[in-house]
């Protein structure tokens, strides 16, 4: 018991004292996950919107696959990226395995389908209302997609937040392609797992608290934005 309260006290000291080790891990985590969400957004937002405004054969299958991919297990995403980036893999020459870039790729693979699927839903609802009005102006396919993305901006920002929450808190994919190398690829989740298994509870607890605050903060922000949207449902 004493150990535990001591560890908590030490953890707080690490946080408020901006312990350099802790800070380094937090900063790398945020860099990796923010990069992944930006990439996943660049892929998922237009892809999801394009599917919602286009009719083509096999569309139902594409949507079903997109929705199913939302539940992609992180270790499977990690395994897939590992196979691509490993020395024998098709992208082995890039030499990215066990670098932060590999972790960004793995989290992008994990999050892009989530963003695409949620974007598809959001834009499809809007499209029904806007389609004829926008076409009456003379808008084309890409203009339609861009305009609908912009009209849905608040809701889509909460989608990005959800993607970030998922990326920053997953451990399976980053540990497989990043390797949890000290000062190189050690992020919050992998460090917590490692430090806990070593019995170094103070750093694990400190990182756990930071991660919790980040994830809760992101979800609270998303919730507030959604409430704001609902409150102005007519706006």
């Amino acid at each position: 018991m004493d150990d535990l309260s001591g560890a908590f006290a030490q953890a707080f000291r690490l946080i408020v004292g901006f312990d350099p080790d802790l800070l380094e891990i937090v900063v790398l985590s945020l860099q990796v996950s923010l990069s992944a969400v930006i990439l996943a957004g660049l892929i998922g937002l237009p892809a999801g919107a394009a599917v919602s405004v286009t009719r083509f054969p096999g569309r139902a299958v594409v949507i079903a696959v997109m929705n199913a991919m939302m539940g992609l297990p992180p270790v499977v995403a990690g395994l897939a990226v590992y196979l691509m980036l490993s020395r024998a893999g098709p992208l082995g020459d890039w030499g990215l395995l066990y670098t932060p870039s590999a972790m960004v790729i793995a989290q992008t693979v994990l999050v892009a389908p989530i963003i695409a699927a949620l974007t598809r839903q959001a834009i499809e609802d809007l499209h029904g209302d806007y389609d004829e009005q926008l076409r009456a102006f003379g808008i084309g396919r890409s203009g339609m997609i861009a305009t609908l993305l912009w009209e849905a901006r608040v809701g889509l920002f909460t989608v990005l937040l959800a993607g970030f929450g998922r990326a920053v808190s997953e451990v399976g994919a980053v540990i497989m392609v990043g390797g949890n190398i000290d000062h190189v690829t050690r992020v919050m989740t992998t460090a917590i797992a490692l430090e806990t298994s070593k019995g170094a509870l103070d750093l694990a607890l400190g990182l756990g608290i930071v991660l919790l605050v980040i994830v809760l903060g992101v979800n609270a922000l998303a919730g507030l934005l959604r409430m704001g949207v609902a409150g102005r449902a007519h706006a």
């Binding site: 957004g41 305009t147 920002f157």
Partner: peptide, 12 residues
């Protein structure tokens, strides 16, 4: 997210 000012093509 696309900025609304840059994406649409104009037709002159």
């Amino acid at each position: 997210m696309p900025d609304d000012g840059t994406v649409l093509t104009t037709t002159g």
